[in-house]
Design a binder for these strands. Structure first.
Lengths: 351, 351
DNA sequence: ATGAAAGCGCTAACAC
DNA sequence: GTGTTAGCGCTTTCAT
């Protein structure tokens, strides 16, 4: 450590050329004679010189994208964040990842930070942008940002110029419901999620609508609101088993809560999918890590990430981008769902 | 979008003061008269001015820490990365997070990037620094970096000036073995992990040693090498059940592979911990998400993250920091381990 | 306490 | 093709 920084000027002096020439071989934005190019490249190699990215960013563009996620420890966000990063890297961009950890204060702090950093666009996945009712204070902050920086999110922000690239949650629910109805299920419950969250709201609405349109009887008690974690699933399912007619199929708000639901089912000595079918959303690695493997709705993370990043870059490049785009979900059918009354499927009466 | 950037000069002109004064109120590094301070602050607020962080970084320090992790989608790295970020934020630092996605090419690319970005220190968790045998090419690259930037890692890098803050894996294994031996287990298997990885190597060695020191008979076939995922656990356990005397306890290389091991056990109609006890490492959220909940070794992520970051900051601040520090593991006892021959613990014969 | 001015390390006109 | 020069937006001596 502790060594004088080598700069472009040192290289230039040693090569007997101007700093501009060194810059040219570095960026290859202009032609330089082979002779000088090789000379300069040699000296750069000799000193292991790496141009200061901060200085570069100050005089040209930063080529940095800001990515704000709710909580990277959640597999859903981790999967999507990684895909965004891949897509960005492919286009020569770096991603500055911020974790909001479900704190509204951090959310604002990170937005400010990314703005100060003059990233070229900000992509936000989760948190305020997922609210059913937009927080006016946050909208105002975003409006400040969008005066100079494109803002793309996975949800919506009423009263702002935010671009939205979101999952078609109604379509997701439709895939799930049709799958279950086709299998013969008529008593279908929905566990987990908060109504104040846009996506959950849409799913809930679609769930109720489809129960009706399929001629199934809708019961308010078949909806168990909660959060998005294991214990929400467990508690929701437990209360369903305690106080109600047992449904033949359960829709979990996500994979994680499905794990809790499964635990509650097993606790009662019931089997999956023999006694109860379970279907979830997100299709994270958890879907394949549990037994039976979960039937789950997939959002095509590589494409989702790519769409977010490509849209950001197109907006930066002044190309026309639709304000609202949808990601088409698809159902991945595994072992947690099966036809009604299909007991003892594998010749086992328990587990 | 598209609006002329407001700079410190604009603020200065409007306030009738010099740019230096505006800078002073921004940084509060020097005293400014209350009168001018309030005047300037008013104008800053009026324009919602935020100083350009890139320009700041160029003229003073960046206050950025580079964090390289193997794969953020792995709950272990996610947990640790988040704690590092928290610790850094508390000290006024920003974290630039890089995902190596288990690719050696990305690992080098990210190291170069962080170097170019002139981060004040680089923390690497996972990948090359976890290898038993240091990759000389990577060591050389790191040596280049450490000429100007402190490098801290979770493993080791022979022949470099890297600081090491690592888990005491031998101690981890000791905790696990003593727990199992105390419960009466004598046939203990070890599933998952690669020998070429330093941590696995240490655990394996300690496992063999402790089998001996406890007078238990060691069988080579009780060691099933693999990777660190669910299917490694599943396949390892399956082969154990197929070809060998069934052990009464299994040590899993991590939570994720433990899930696979559990699946293989259940597939055979055996119970946990009734027939087989399972203990794992990492204590990620998965330990609590499965049934039965896993007994697992915890690494105190908040403290681990804090130690990494504090050490980095101390090195930056030229304070004395030990080249090698250890994180003390602790065992979290849950439901997947119990006394030998404790069948039908909960009155259930199955599941 | 405050202003003038010199960087920080690089890029990009502009001139030759 | 190549060098000169003026920024990019801020911080920080150095005077006053």
């Amino acid at each position: 450590m502790a060594e004088q920084e080598v700069t472009i000027y040192d290289i230039a002096r040693e090569a007997g050329v101007s700093p501009a020439t060194v810059s040219r071989v570095l960026t290859s934005n202009a032609r330089v004679s082979d002779k000088k190019r090789e000379l300069v490249e040699g000296i750069i190699r000799k000193h292991d010189f790496r141009p200061n990215a901060v200085a570069r960013q100050l005089s040209s563009s930063t080529r940095i994208l800001g990515l704000m996620t709710a909580d990277i420890r959640n597999p859903y966000y981790a999967a999507l964040a990684v895909e965004c990063e891949k897509a960005a890297n492919e286009r020569g961009y770096t991603v500055l990842l911020c974790n909001m950890l479900n704190s509204r204060a951090m959310e604002e702090a990170h937005l400010e930070k990314l703005y100060a950093q003059r990233v070229e666009a900000i992509i936000q996945i989760g948190c305020r942008v997922d609210d059913l009712a937009t927080d006016p204070a946050y909208a105002e902050l975003v409006n400040r940002v969008t005066r100079t920086i494109p803002f793309i999110c996975s949800g919506k922000l009423d009263g702002t110029e935010a671009y939205s690239i979101r999952i078609d949650h109604a379509e997701s629910m439709k895939l799930v419901m049709e799958h279950l109805v086709t299998l013969g299920h008529r008593d279908i419950a929905f566990i987990g999620g908060e109504r104040r969250v846009q996506s959950t709201h849409e799913m809930l609405q679609q769930y109720i609508y489809l129960m009706g349109s399929h001629g199934l009887s809708f019961r308010e008690t078949y909806i168990k609101e909660g959060y998005y974690d294991e214990s929400s699933g467990y508690n929701g399912m437990k209360s369903l088993l305690d106080h109600d007619t047992v449904p033949s199929a359960v829709i979990a708000i996500n994979d994680y809560s499905a794990i809790g639901i499964m635990r509650a089912v097993f606790d009662r000595g019931l089997s999956i999918p023999g006694d109860i079918s379970i279907v979830s959303f997100d299709n994270t690695f958890l879907s394949e890590a549990v037994e039976p493997k979960l039937t789950s709705v997939d959002y095509n993370y590589p494409e989702f990430g790519k769409t977010l990043v490509e849209s950001a870059l197109n907006i930066i490049g002044k190309k026309a981008v639709s304000n609202l785009q949808f990601i088409r979900p698809r159902l991945i059918i595994r072992d947690s769902s099966s036809g009604l009354k299909n007991f003892h499927k594998n010749g086992k009466s328990c587990q």
